[in-house]
């Protein structure tokens, strides 16, 4: 891509919204986007306009009753029930143990299961927003060894969320997952579970520690896929606040 100084960020916003930017332009634009609230507003407005475009597409004859029946049979039992309730009940068990372990973690699970470029971009934008928030504190979790895994936690205190970025972390075995722990003076408080990609990376947004907790550090352990109420293995990585 030859550098083209004539492209003002605003000029790229339309193509960005249409997912039509070439990769180098898209990266440059996202860097601008992260810095400029005005540009984000522009993008939001253009997205609203673009979302009206399909109103002009010809309607397709359809059988609403049959489609709705298919839709309901897809969701019945399969999704809200199966995906939400059991996880929630796992979390509920923790609430008793750890006071206010936030239920919102469910929303962050599998945040980065990417399925398309535009969604990846939208998520990246959301992640940047979390990381660039002024109250965000970085906590490094480290280990020792030849090619040690590492985790960066971007703790957005205002939003009560944590963006977790892992590297060199081999995926947990079948039926297992990694679990984040918030360390305090006392028993660790359980955080969200996640897994890494085959290339050892993970990028997830999970709930932050309970607001009333005095956090002294964080750790990650290998646990059963549903998560544990207290650590059952030795931490893979550990880090404390304000130091190594």
């Amino acid at each position: 891509m030859n550098p083209d100084d004539r492209d003002e960020p605003r000029d790229l916003a339309a193509a960005y919204v249409l997912d039509a930017l070439d990769p180098a332009d898209a990266r440059a634009f996202e860097a601008q986007l992260a810095r400029s609230a005005e540009l984000r507003k522009e993008v939001t407005e253009l997205r609203e306009a673009a979302a009206l475009i399909p109103l002009s597409a010809p309607s397709v004859p359809r059988d609403d009753a049959a489609l709705k029946a298919r839709l309901l049979s897809r969701v019945r039992g399969a999704s809200a029930g199966a995906l939400r309730s059991p996880r929630r009940s796992v979390w509920m068990a923790w609430v008793g143990w750890a006071a206010a372990a936030a239920l919102a973690v469910v929303a962050g699970l599998q945040w980065f299961r990417a399925s398309s470029l535009s969604e990846q971009l939208a998520r990246r934008e959301a992640t940047l927003d979390e990381i660039l928030e002024p109250s965000t504190q970085l906590i490094l979790l480290t280990a020792t060894g030849e090619r040690p895994p590492g985790i960066q936690l971007f703790w957005n205190k205002a939003g009560g969320r944590v963006v977790l970025h892992a590297f060199n972390l081999p995926p947990a075995a079948q039926g297992r997952a990694y679990q984040l722990w918030f360390l305090r003076d006392g028993a660790p408080v359980p955080g969200g579970t996640f897994n890494s990609d085959p290339d050892g990376h993970a990028l997830v947004t999970v709930a932050g520690p309970p607001a009333d907790l005095t956090l002294i550090g964080a750790a990650v352990t290998d646990e059963p896929a549903g998560g544990s109420a207290q650590p059952t293995t030795t931490p893979v990585v550990v880090g404390t606040i304000g130091g190594e």
Binding site: A51, P54, S116, L117, E119, A122, A126
Partner: peptide, 18 residues
């Protein structure tokens, strides 16, 4: 981050384009 209309149309368009 946008209206429900944007949320749904973006998902449909992405999936269809995939």
């Amino acid at each position: 981050r946008g209206s429900v209309r944007v949320w749904l149309t973006v998902m449909v368009r992405s999936r269809a384009l995939d």
